[in-house]
């Protein structure tokens, strides 16, 4: 982490930014870490190459909006789901190819898992249907859920996929011969999902401004509530000690150690000014979390010390996405009004 202190924003001295003119749905680093893809609400993806940040190439990927975006499972680009019902691959040179079609339904969620340099898994959902594909788009499984899938996530080993939906979540085994999911049940509308890095808990966000969780394997319930707004973003630290969440006027971090989160108060970072935190992203190596707020403010906060590093000023619209690269030296961010930036966190 940078040693910068004071009230200046890292973006001013160590960042590049552009106004892309459309809602930034997601920013993601390519698997080799050399490019950032910004997926936009106008159906284009802008690709910034870190070697030459002067040129952000625009490529049209969907007829409509991009709704879901992830690093490719193998190779070096991205996979993109759109409201045109297609799942497409975008290479870092801007080449677009089709992976799968879902008819008239929106492709709302995409998750990828890299097995090695040439093999990986892609999961994509449209309505109740989730397709599990190999890296070249071959269909491995078609899995149907009781209602529309609202979130998709692989566990850290790529063995299981979690899908959130009404009345809970389904955990599917990637390699299972018969597809019977582990049903994690809790009444209500679940709208996002994460799996603990060690695979021993699943957490969902709910319509009622609360989180629900299940310890695995016993399925013990966890309730985390008190949010003034809906949680849309959840992120575990690398070691799984903390889970950061959006939906309050601070980054809310629940302890997943020492018996937590049950009966423990969460840690609140960078709060106090009444602005709702929209996005959280835990650093891939350190106990550090980035948070993006509804006024455009982005900060990074050290969890142990609660020290806050200002990253991007409260301008440019509500933060809609945050992403770290794999070694945690860069943070990409985007806003609802089309502002996008890449900030350098490397020690110089």
């Amino acid at each position: 982490m940078s040693q910068a202190t004071g009230s200046h924003f890292l973006l001013e001295t160590r960042g590049v930014s552009k106004d892309l003119g459309a809602f930034v749905v997601a920013a993601r680093f390519s698997p080799d870490g050399r490019a950032v893809g910004f997926a936009l609400g106008d159906g284009t993806v802008r690709i910034a190459h870190l070697g030459d940040l002067s040129d952000w190439r625009s490529t049209t990927v969907h007829d409509g909006a991009v709704l879901a975006f992830a690093p490719d499972a193998a190779g070096n680009g991205f996979v993109s789901g759109g409201d045109d019902g297609t799942l497409r691959r975008v290479a870092t040179d801007g080449t677009v190819s089709e992976i799968s079609r879902f008819g008239g339904k929106w492709v709302e969620h995409v998750a990828t898992y890299t097995i090695d340099r040439t093999r990986g898994l892609i999961a994509a959902s449209a309505g109740r249907l989730m397709r599990l594909l190999d890296q070249s788009g071959g269909v491995l499984k078609e899995l149907t859920h009781p209602s529309t899938v609202t979130g998709l996530v692989f566990d850290a080993k790529g063995k299981r996929i979690g899908a959130s939906h009404y009345n809970g979540a389904s955990l599917w085994f990637v390699a299972a011969k018969t597809d019977t999911p582990r049903q994690l049940e809790w009444k209500g509308s679940h709208t996002a999902i994460v799996i603990h890095p060690e695979g021993d808990a699943v957490v969902t966000a709910m319509q009622e401004n609360a989180l629900h969780g299940w310890k695995l394997p016993d399925g013990q319930h966890m309730r985390m509530s008190g949010y003034p707004a809906k949680t849309t973003s959840l992120s575990f630290t690398r070691n799984g000690r903390w889970m950061a969440s959006s939906g309050a006027d601070a980054m809310v971090l629940w302890p997943f150690f020492g018996g937590g989160p049950m009966g423990k108060a969460p840690l609140e970072l960078s709060g106090g000014d009444g602005i709702i935190c929209n996005q959280v992203a835990c650093h891939p190596k350190e106990e550090l979390v980035a948070g993006g707020f509804a006024d455009g403010l982005v900060v990074a906060s050290d969890i142990a010390s609660s020290r806050v590093l200002p990253v991007s000023p409260p301008r440019h619209g509500a933060i809609s996405t945050l992403a770290w690269n794999a070694d945690g030296t860069r943070l990409a961010l985007g806003t609802e009004t089309g502002f996008a930036a890449i900030v350098d966190f490397a020690k110089h």
Partner: peptide, 29 residues
């Protein structure tokens, strides 16, 4: 897709699909 809110109110049912669709449409506002 209708669901019941968890707020102790039996008649409080909501169309979750519309919440998602409005969110998606707003991206192309």
């Amino acid at each position: 897709e209708v669901f019941e809110m968890n707020n102790g109110c039996i008649c409080c049912t909501v169309r979750g699909d519309l919440i998602r669709i409005v969110g998606g449409l707003m991206k192309r506002r």
